[in-house]
């Protein structure tokens, strides 16, 4: 059991790192899915089988699929790869890495000298269910309302009226300027590809 834990953990970390560094969006997404599945295994080894299942079904199964759909719809293609290559420069990731390392040091400092070893015994789904219908009932209702809000919001934002004239800010200000100065990165990809 412990071995599975460590292997799954290592897979998760490595998959995430690969996700970060790959410039092809779809590849990165697939690595992310792998990472999430590994985390599900970690959950199982901890005895939290309910959330392991949940992770696979909801997180990796629904959310990531949504991601994949949208990315496919965006249709970035080769240009997308070039863009990512241009953006993934040391100048960009130095700052966040620094902050993250500070946080990691803080985490290590926090958990120093804690008791080693995992507690035995799983937490049954039944227990979780009782907790959900008991003290955490309000949270459940709120979560459902949140999901409703998310639904409505996503519907509204994704709505495309056919006749609305698109304001196309990008066309006239930033994009035009960028296009005029011959900057393919900021000028947007599709337009440049289609402009004769």
């Amino acid at each position: 059991m412990e071995l599975a834990f460590y292997i799954a953990g290592a897979v998760a970390v490595i998959a995430t790192l690969l996700m970060l560094t790959h410039v092809n969006v779809v590849h990165a997404l697939l690595y992310l899915i792998v990472s999430l599945l590994a985390v599900a295994v970690v959950f199982y080894t901890l005895g939290a089988s309910f959330v392991a299942a949940l992770e696979v079904i909801a997180y990796a199964g629904a959310i990531m699929v949504l991601f994949v759909f949208v990315v496919m719809m965006l249709n970035l293609g080769e240009h997308g790869v070039e863009l990512e290559k241009q953006w993934l420069t040391p100048g960009i990731w130095t700052g966040p890495v620094l902050l993250a390392s500070i946080l990691i040091i803080a985490v290590f400092y926090l958990v120093r000298g804690g008791t080693a070893g995992l507690a035995t015994g799983a937490v049954e789904p039944k227990e979780v269910g009782i907790a959900l219908f008991g003290p955490y009932l309000i949270g459940v209702e709120l979560a459902s309302m949140l999901l409703l809000a998310g639904l409505v919001g996503a519907y509204h934002l994704g709505f495309r009226k056919a006749k609305k004239p698109e304001i196309q800010y990008g066309r006239y200000t930033h994009e035009r300027r960028a296009a005029a100065s011959g900057n393919p990165v900021l000028a947007g990809t599709d337009q440049l590809a289609r402009t004769p």
Binding site: G95, L99, I102, L103, Y109
Partner: peptide, 16 residues
């Protein structure tokens, strides 16, 4: 976003 992240990190460190 960077500002917010840096701020929270700082906060956490100070609290720690």
């Amino acid at each position: 976003t960077f500002g917010m992240a840096a701020g929270s990190v700082l906060f956490i460190v100070v609290v720690l």
